[in-house]
Design a binder for these strands. Structure first.
Length: 498
RNA sequence: GGUCCUGUGGCCGAGUGGCUAGGCAGAGGUCUGCAAAACCUCGUACAGCGGUUCGAAUCCGCUCGGGACCUCCA
């Protein structure tokens, strides 16, 4: 376990040393997707970032329980229910899409996208719809504490009353009085005692499709409730890390803190982490703005803003080239450069795996390179420890890659580094690339054996100076997205970076 | 309007008081049948204007630009 991991805590607005409440255990909750649409680039960033945190904590030796929910109690409503005549036109129940059918479909596609992005499965992935009793119990607890009230079958959280004892707005830096000044009148506000109050339980209108019985009538849980209920159920009332996108800070996480405090008598999380948004042409990407790019569009290239398809690992690498709290702007140019960089790294991974240390008494020790390698290895850890600065990690990996390539092509002797440093070089490179950043090879269909035998033919043709044959083999490799590398030390192949 | 973030070389993107980030693109070189790959070298960037300081991209102020949240949102 690293005593040096520092994470930026939105609650305190500074980087803090990470000290789990109950080491070696770590409880981490991340707000999952609302499954009423396909996952887009923004989801990719959030879940890749927290996947890297999950991986890093594990690699440090912590026993992490990672909970990431599925929100499937959205506000799906039957659009035709309100229009009498159309309603009659419906013939059979089976012709209609069940709300759970919609949720299932998008849950499946979300999982498929995450798998392609090599995002590890969370330890528990609870669904809001499967935790209605827990949510009702939490509402009851808050009611008992006098910090909520019932109105027309709905239950609202009493923000001002809560604020008398505990400051509401600690996470987002808001003050209730200031917010009251700028509130607008939205429909459904009549029942609330105060515009800032938010729903814990909502009475279901007739056209609302998802509904459950409750002590207050038939309805559905409020928008923020599920996370409080499920986080507490699986991680305890107080746990280590709560994460999500920056856009969730207010109101979602702010309400969660208030609810949990009211219902569980403690602040839910010690560290609040928030990733920044992905922007397109400098503007936030979002469903409501209509400028979002779904992941399946990215992977297929089927979108007006995309000049080509980009592989899942290209996207992952693109995301990790930036620090998670910085905004990240999408562009074809940026993705294309990420694609090349990613492939370069993968070529290095293959080489690092096949390099073997060869002791050689005649090779003089190269102290300068040895020190450089050690500093670069430390740089990887330091980068991660400094609030998951994956951009710094990637920079260090590329510098390590130069050493690996130099050894591979004969410019640097492994023996000159000494066995210990050499092993550290290859191990660090492989571990950080694969295990921590979670980048893996996207293999082409070619069986490795075919490549090996073709390379043997290439070598023979070359020795015989049959250049027609040589060029032909090279041409074939190119059609497979591969290139042949001629080096003093031998012949090898690599992924074409272009 | 309120709260907050941000502006780095052709592009992306770290750094945040003095010491080469890195990737992509570009230039030159080594290697090579020609290439490719790889390696080496190169750009001397920090929105503008003031200020603090021996010294600022890095701190402070102002100006200009961009963005987020205040409503479901990763």
């Amino acid at each position: 376990m690293s005593p040096n991991l520092r994470l930026y805590n939105t609650l305190t607005k500074q980087k803090e040393l990470f000290e789990p409440l109950n080491p070696p255990f770590v409880g981490m909750y991340v707000c999952g997707p609302t499954v009423y649409g396909d996952a887009h680039l923004g989801h990719a960033r959030a879940y890749i970032v927290f996947d890297v945190l999950f991986r890093y904590l594990q690699s440090l030796g912590y026993r992490v329980r990672y909970v990431r929910n599925i929100t499937d109690v959205g506000h799906l409503s039957d659009e035709v229910a309100g229009e009498g005549e159309d309603r009659i036109a419906r013939k059979a129940k089976l012709q209609q899409l069940e709300p759970m059918e919609v949720a299932q479909r998008y849950t499946d596609s979300f999982h498929a996208d995450m798998d392609r992005l090599n995002v590890r499965h969370p330890s528990i992935e609870p669904r809001a719809s499967g935790h209605i009793p827990e949510q009702i119990a939490l509402v009851e607890a808050i009611l008992r504490g006098g910090l909520a009230y019932e109105a027309n079958g709905s239950v609202y959280f009493d923000v001002l009353k809560y604020n008398e004892h505990r400051p509401y707005g600690v996470l987002s830096g808001r003050v209730p009085e200031d917010m009251l000044a700028g509130t607008r009148d939205l429909d459904g506000q009549r029942e609330k005692r105060n515009p800032l109050d938010f729903a814990l339980w909502k009475n279901a209108a007739p056209e609302h499709l998802m509904r459950w019985p409750s002590p207050w009538g038939v309805g559905f849980p409020g928008w923020h409730l599920e996370c409080s209920a499920m986080g507490a159920k699986y991680l305890g009332n107080r746990f280590d890390i709560h994460g999500g996108g920056m856009d969730l800070i207010f109101p979602h996480h702010e309400c969660e803190i208030a609810q949990s405090q009211a219902g569980h008598r403690t602040e839910p999380a010690k560290y609040w982490l928030h990733n920044n948004m992905i922007t397109i042409n400098g503007q936030k990407m979002g469903r409501s703005l209509g400028n979002f790019i779904n992941l399946n569009a990215v992977f297929s290239g089927n979108h007006a803003l995309l000049q080509q398809a980009y592989t899942p690992m290209t996207v992952r690498f693109f995301v990790l080239q930036a620090q998670y709290r910085s905004p990240l702007d999408f562009s074809n140019e940026a993705l294309q450069s990420a694609q090349k960089g990613y492939r370069r790294l993968m070529n290095g991974l293959r080489i690092a795996r096949q390099l073997a240390y060869a002791p050689d008494e005649t090779v003089a020790a190269d102290e300068r390179n040895r020190q450089e390698v050690n500093a670069l290895c430390e740089g990887c850890t330091k980068g991660m420890d400094d609030d998951l600065n994956t951009a710094v990690v990637v920079a260090n990996l590329f510098n390590l890659l130069k050493k690996i390539n130099s050894i591979h092509t004969g410019g640097l002797q492994a023996a000159a580094l000494g066995e210990e440093t050499f092993n550290r070089l290859t191990t660090t490179f492989i571990t950080f690339t694969e295990e921590i950043l979670g980048l893996r090879e996207e293999k082409s269909a070619n069986p490795d054996e075919l490549i090996v035998s073709l390379l043997e033919l290439y070598r023979e043709a070359k020795a015989a100076k049959e250049y027609d044959k040589v060029d032909k083999i090279r041409g074939y490799f190119k059609t497979q997205g591969l290139v042949i590398k001629d080096m003093k030390t031998g012949i090898d192949w690599a992924y074409e970076e272009g």
